[in-house]
Nucleic acid binder design. Structure first.
Length: 181
DNA sequence: CCCTGATTCGC
DNA sequence: GCGAATCAGG
């Protein structure tokens, strides 16, 4: 995974918005937070530490809107807490069963307390490339339908977040749904 | 422990 | 230039 101009621009933007290095790494995909931090330094982007010492982000106590829910377009939250916030509030058009499965996915596919959800780039079908996540978002019958569009590794049609969902067998998902219901 | 960013250094 | 390993702090 190399630092293309496009990825560097996204890095700069997200860093300027105050997202943490690990969050940015999740948005870009294919890089670690260390890689992001390293790149930030090489680009001479303004760091977040106090001048001088070898210490850390003492400053930047209030990050803009990064770790708190964003404006709330349907998929654009940076973080969600476990049992909360369904990622696809396509409410009216969504089947009840589908909502249940989504809710379970929120809980089942979390590596830790928080799940970093990629910010959908809301690409249309014709905007997809080999390396963009092809996870569909929303109801295909509405104008709002789009694809995740985040960076995906060439080994998968999906970004790292959606791979977890894509590879979960459907019957497993249904069983899980029944268990809870 | 979870997280943060900063630094080092072999590649 | 890159980023894993490590450090140091919250």
């Amino acid at each position: 995974m190399n630092w293309t101009d496009e990825r560097v621009e996204r890095l700069k933007k997200l860093w300027a918005e105050g997202l943490s290095a690990s969050q940015i790494a999740a948005q870009l995909g294919g890089v670690s937070r260390n890689a992001v931090i390293g790149k930030v330094h090489r680009l001479n982007l303004p760091g977040r530490a106090k001048a001088g010492g070898a210490t850390t982000a003492t400053r930047a106590p209030k990050r803009p809107a990064a770790s708190t829910p964003r404006p709330a377009s349907n998929f654009n939250s940076a973080r969600i807490s476990p049992a909360r916030a369904v990622a696809r509030p396509q409410g009216s058009a969504m089947l009840k069963e589908e909502m249940d499965i989504d809710a379970i996915e929120e809980v089942r596919f979390r590596p830790s307390a928080n799940v970093v959800v990629p910010i959908s780039r809301r690409l249309g079908l014709t905007e997809l490339t080999e390396r963009t996540c092809k996870w569909p978002v929303g109801d295909p019958l509405t104008d709002d339908f789009h694809f995740c569009g985040c960076e995906s590794p060439d080994t998968s049609p999906y970004c790292t977040y959606h791979q977890r969902m894509a590879y979960q067998p459907v019957n497993e998902r249904r069983k899980a749904a029944n268990r809870v219901a």
